[in-house]
Simulated assay, not measured.
Amino acid sequence: MVNRSKEFYADFALVIVALIWGVTFLPMALALKTNGVFVLLFWRFLIAFILMSLISLKFVKKIDLNSVKYGLIVGVFLFGGFALQTFALKFTFSSTVAFITGLVVIFVPFLVFVMFKTKIRLYSYVGAILATIGLYILCDGEFGFGWGEFLSLLCAFAYAFEIVLAGYFVKKCEIFTMVATEFLIVCLLSLACAVAFDGRVLPVFDREFIVAVGITATFATVFAFFVQNLAQRYTTPVKTVLILTLEPVGAGVIGYYFGGEILTSWQIFGAIIILVGILVSEIGSYFVQNLRGQR
């Protein structure tokens, strides 16, 4: 049985991760004005890999080959999510991409059921549906279906597999090696795409690049992905993906206060629905656990 206090702290840690990822949207958007997406991803994950490897030296005495294998698999899906989302932005509105990518909150429960035959509670479905409705409203309800939408759908599946597999593998291996390998795979694949699509690897070393890579490599990659993987030892993939829907909420708040972006009352309402969906899932899990404890 999962320790309830550990699950609570894991869920709270995931809230922090989601908010950190939300904060990175604005500096990344500014850096993209002078640098290609894959150039930024390459340097972000290269620095993250180096930092994670240095940290691992303190805790890892022997490299576990299973951890390397699991990190490789998860890294491929993580990169797939980044790459597909990037190309989707070339064909449709960013809000549409954000909404369809957010459908990961619906895909994860079904993947968990299909892959591991894990029963999904009703409150998880309710929370997922509310979060999806909230994402749709937050993204201003722009939706059609073309290449951009199709790529966004594939992106959502890639992220869903990453979350489900990370939650499964992290309980079976050494976490430092797995996460470092994950970063290395994304770094190498980003390098190949930077050469193929951006035509360069060296960045424009302006202030925006330094700030964006500095923040994303340390806080949004080394810290956030390590905490996400660690937290998934104590909570479920369904709750993980629900909590991570806070990312666009955090991005909207930062964009509003620091980037001069405008949030309509309708979008704020969408953000509130996302929060309600997360609370339904969170409170529901504790309610069910307490009922079990009273039997």
Rank of each mutant, 00 (worst) to 15 (best):
R4D: 04
S5A: 13
S5P: 01
K6L: 12
A10R: 02
F12T: 03
F12C: 09
L19V: 15
T24M: 14
F25S: 07
L30P: 01
L30Y: 05
F42S: 10
W43C: 01
R44C: 08
F45T: 03
A48G: 08
A48E: 04
F49L: 03
F49I: 03
S53V: 07
S53M: 13
L54P: 12
I55S: 03
I55Y: 11
I55M: 05
F59N: 06
V60F: 11
K61R: 15
I63N: 10
D64L: 05
N66L: 15
L78H: 02
L78S: 12
Q85A: 02
F87C: 03
K90N: 08
F91Y: 15
S94A: 15
A98T: 13
T101E: 04
V104H: 04
P109L: 07
F116Q: 04
K117W: 09
T118A: 07
T118I: 12
K119Q: 09
V126Y: 06
G127N: 10
G127Q: 06
A128W: 10
I129E: 11
I129M: 00
A131L: 03
I133D: 08
G134H: 12
L135K: 08
Y136Q: 05
D140I: 03
G141E: 12
E142G: 09
F143L: 15
G144E: 14
F145G: 07
G146E: 13
G146A: 15
G146D: 15
E149N: 04
E149S: 10
F150C: 01
L154K: 03
C155F: 00
C155R: 03
A158V: 08
E162A: 14
E162N: 13
I163A: 11
I163E: 07
V164K: 02
L165N: 09
V170F: 04
V170T: 15
C173W: 00
C173H: 00
C173M: 14
I175S: 06
T177R: 10
M178Q: 06
M178T: 04
V179C: 12
A180E: 09
L184M: 13
L184C: 12
L184A: 14
L184F: 15
I185A: 13
V186N: 09
C187V: 02
L188D: 07
F205G: 10
F209S: 07
I210R: 09
I215G: 03
T218A: 13
A224C: 05
A224E: 05
Q228A: 05
T236D: 07
T240H: 09
I243C: 08
T245R: 11
P248W: 09
P248Q: 11
V249Q: 06
V253F: 13
I254M: 14
Y257Q: 02
G260L: 14
G260T: 13
E261S: 05
L263C: 01
L263Q: 10
T264V: 06
F269K: 00
F269Q: 04
I272W: 06
I273R: 03
G277N: 02
I278Y: 08
L279A: 13
I283Q: 01
S285F: 01
F287S: 02
R292G: 10
Q294K: 13
